[in-house]
């Protein structure tokens, strides 16, 4: 496991959330934690207003993803707070105000920090990696394919953290939907090795920071073998008290 974990930096971010009196990290913060821990995330930057957004978007390069950033809005799609694949500054300018209006309509008292401008990832196979703390056994990692596989078919696997590479590989192969990753009907195999790495790192993170009550990396885009995987959205929730 190629671990470039910055334990100090993760602790700093988590401490600052606590100081804020919050348990819930916004997407940007969650991704910073993951990035500090060596988990690949798509480039994600905060823009507090439109002019900042325009500037940041040029750096990130179009097409981009635009998402509402609020500690009070967990389900961003439900709040109509997400636009995917904006390809020009014109589209960005049209969407910026709209997303803020949508968020206000969804939850009038929500504190809105701004919007995140994110690197757009073209459609690919999606998976989910999660973590929870079992009251008796401790840090536990969950794996599944995205969307209907998890929500309807409950096709997920679990392992106790920390995990060996063999454990992570077994938990990937254990789900019924595994052929989707192995490659069916002419599709090349997905980069399972990259997933093994993410699973191990998420497990290690949850194991070393028991104050992380829950993690949900959803979706993770996984590319063809050798091309890696990247976390496109993430949510981290802290335990109630230290």
């Amino acid at each position: 496991m190629g671990l470039v974990a910055d334990k100090k930096k993760v602790a700093e971010i988590l401490n600052s959330i606590r100081k804020d009196g919050r348990r819930e990290l916004v997407e940007l913060e969650s991704k910073r934690v993951l990035a500090a821990w060596g988990v690949p995330v798509n480039r994600t930057e905060l823009a507090r207003d439109l002019s900042e957004a325009v500037k940041v978007a040029r750096e990130v390069h179009y097409p981009i993803v635009l998402k509402i950033a609020s500690p009070d809005i967990i389900h961003k799609s439900e709040a109509k707070g997400v636009k995917v694949g904006l390809s020009s500054e014109l589209e960005l300018r049209q969407s910026f105000g709209e997303l803020i209006d949508n968020a206000r309509a969804y939850k009038p008292d929500a504190k809105i920090i701004g919007l995140t401008i994110q690197e757009y990832i073209p459609p690919s196979r999606e998976v989910i990696v999660g973590a929870l703390q079992d009251p008796s056994f401790g840090a536990t990692v969950m794996f599944g394919l995205g969307g209907v596989w998890v929500e309807v078919l409950e096709d997920v696997s679990f392992r106790l953290a920390p995990l060996s590479a063999e454990d992570a590989r077994e938990m990937i192969q254990e789900i019924k939907g595994y052929p989707v990753l192995a490659g069916i009907r002419g599709t090349p195999p997905a980069d399972v090795g990259a997933l093994v790495d993410i699973i191990q790192k998420v497990g290690q993170l949850a194991h070393e920071f028991p104050r992380i009550a829950e993690m949900d990396l959803n979706p993770i885009f996984v590319f063809d073998d050798g091309k890696g995987a990247v976390v496109a959205d993430a949510r981290i929730v802290l335990r109630e008290s230290e």
Partner: peptide, 13 residues
Amino acid sequence: ERDKIFAAYLKQV
């Protein structure tokens, strides 16, 4: 859900 989780722990070890 813990049933599935517990089964996974046992298998793992």
